[in-house]
Simulated assay, not measured.
Amino acid sequence: MGIRDRFEAPVSGIAARSRAGQWVRAAVARMTTPLLPDDYLHLANPLWSARELRGRIESVARETDDTATIRIRPGWGFTFDYAPGQYIGIGVLVDGRWTWRSYSLTSVPDTTRTDGLVAITVKAMPEGFLSSHLVNGLTPGTIVRLAAPQGEFVLPDPLPAKILFATAGSGLTPIISMLRTMTHRRQRTDITLIHSTPTPESLLFATELDDLAASGMIDLHIRHTRVDGKLTAADLTTLCPDWTGRATWACGPSGFLDMLTGAFDSAGVTENLHIERFALERGAVGAQGGTVTFGRAGRSTEVDGATTLLEAGESAGVIMPFGCRMGICQSCVVMLDKGCVRDLRSGAEHVEGERIQTCVSAAAGDCTIDV
């Protein structure tokens, strides 16, 4: 181990945005040994931490009956130079357990901003424990843990001459950040937005979208699926005749994105389509559950077919690797030593000797994973 490695050892497990940031954290740790820096920093400000990113909930504002925009004041170590379209991880302490999920940022990235806030807009899902808590149970002043913004669902610079945004439900959230950022930066290009939502009452950011359309910023098409039915490839051509020639960013439920993927593939313009799948849909395929054994930890737990291996490990007190918790970043990949698991998104089965994503896989019978 070199001098630098030895110096940074007290904070070696902490994610840092830069080498300089890691050295600052290490210096604080060395000065406060044998206690952790947090033992002192927390007394001064609960948002100061040498070990992790933290934030304080500033407000929870309703957007619709089941959706709220949550504004967060990040603490030491957070920077506001994220890209519109990226997501952030948020960890909330509920019933003595930290539960993590990731949500698209809906605020504007601006390193000169004076309010020091970021925002996420969350829809309470019937099967979503944390999303329901964030919308209905989170109170201002709550301290949360944060993971730095990440994700590749972003716009290029310079902007394409023609853009199509195709969204459904809460898939509008990363797109609203893009539109807000373009407005903030006074950027203009030819934009068509096609958005599907069940009813007028469920439409997110309704007034803001109307204002953007009235200003000429976007050509807006809202489809109410309970009346008009789900969007089809034929509808796409009717609403946006030149869609095959537009750079397209799409976000929404899997069925919606599958339709778009098929349409772009059939038209031979797959390279124009950029998609974001951020919702883990459960219940579409059934897994039988079983006993999950964590080999290196020497622990086991009984789970049902809707509980991910990541959640099973955390509930059993096993330290599990994770990142986005949505099957995107590959941070949670481990070896399946025994048994069979099922991918909750597609139903595909994986057997022993394969590497699996614990955040989107559930037990299909008894299994053992290398954690």
Rank of each mutant, 00 (worst) to 15 (best):
residue 81 D to K: 02
residue 198 P to I: 00
residue 107 S to K: 07
residue 16 A to E: 15
residue 130 L to M: 14
residue 98 W to I: 14
residue 225 T to D: 03
residue 21 G to S: 09
residue 113 R to D: 07
residue 206 A to W: 02
residue 93 L to Q: 05
residue 276 E to I: 08
residue 210 D to C: 08
residue 60 V to P: 03
residue 297 A to N: 12
residue 125 M to F: 03
residue 126 P to Q: 11
residue 370 D to P: 06
residue 310 L to C: 01
residue 307 T to F: 09
residue 239 L to V: 10
residue 45 N to E: 14
residue 71 R to V: 05
residue 134 L to Y: 02
residue 44 A to K: 08
residue 182 M to Q: 00
residue 366 D to C: 05
residue 124 A to M: 00
residue 260 L to P: 04
residue 118 V to N: 03
residue 2 G to N: 11
residue 284 A to R: 15
residue 146 L to C: 07
residue 46 P to D: 05
residue 286 G to V: 14
residue 101 R to M: 04
residue 104 S to E: 05
residue 67 T to P: 01
residue 190 D to N: 09
residue 298 G to V: 08
residue 247 A to T: 15
residue 325 R to D: 04
residue 266 S to W: 07
residue 305 G to H: 07
residue 248 T to F: 00
residue 148 A to E: 09
residue 297 A to Y: 07
residue 36 L to P: 10
residue 331 S to F: 08
residue 309 L to R: 05
residue 86 Q to H: 06
residue 183 T to D: 15
residue 139 T to E: 13
residue 243 W to M: 02
residue 251 C to H: 07
residue 61 A to I: 13
residue 320 M to G: 03
residue 59 S to P: 07
residue 104 S to G: 03
residue 307 T to P: 09
residue 99 T to P: 04
residue 152 E to Y: 12
residue 248 T to E: 10
residue 178 M to Q: 09
residue 298 G to H: 06
residue 2 G to K: 09
residue 282 R to G: 10
residue 49 S to Y: 05
residue 121 T to H: 00
residue 163 I to Q: 12
residue 112 T to D: 15
residue 249 W to V: 06
residue 134 L to N: 02
residue 36 L to M: 11
residue 283 G to F: 00
residue 351 V to L: 15
residue 23 W to Q: 04
residue 1 M to A: 15
residue 113 R to A: 14
residue 37 P to I: 04
residue 178 M to L: 08
residue 42 H to R: 15
residue 137 G to P: 04
residue 64 T to M: 02
residue 300 S to P: 08
residue 88 I to K: 11
residue 261 T to F: 09
residue 143 I to T: 05
residue 77 G to M: 12
residue 115 D to K: 02
residue 70 I to A: 05
residue 186 R to M: 06
residue 59 S to Y: 09
residue 13 G to P: 06
residue 205 F to P: 00
residue 297 A to L: 06
residue 310 L to F: 03
residue 314 E to I: 12
residue 124 A to K: 06
residue 368 T to F: 01
residue 234 A to W: 11
residue 351 V to H: 15
residue 97 R to V: 10
residue 212 L to P: 00
residue 83 A to G: 05
residue 189 T to Q: 07
residue 348 A to Q: 15
residue 265 D to C: 06
residue 144 V to N: 03
residue 285 V to R: 08
residue 52 E to Q: 15
residue 70 I to T: 10
residue 19 R to H: 07
residue 230 K to V: 10
residue 57 I to P: 06
residue 228 D to T: 10
residue 313 G to R: 01
residue 213 A to Y: 00
residue 271 E to R: 15
residue 195 H to W: 07
residue 162 K to H: 14
residue 66 D to Y: 10
residue 185 R to M: 10
residue 290 G to H: 11
residue 309 L to A: 01
residue 311 E to G: 14
residue 52 E to V: 12
residue 283 G to M: 00
residue 197 T to N: 08
residue 370 D to K: 12
residue 98 W to Q: 09
residue 160 P to W: 02
residue 345 R to H: 11
residue 311 E to V: 08
residue 183 T to W: 07
residue 346 S to E: 04
residue 89 G to A: 14
residue 8 E to W: 11
residue 167 T to A: 15
residue 31 M to D: 08
residue 359 C to K: 08
residue 41 L to I: 11
residue 305 G to S: 07
residue 166 A to C: 06
residue 145 R to K: 13
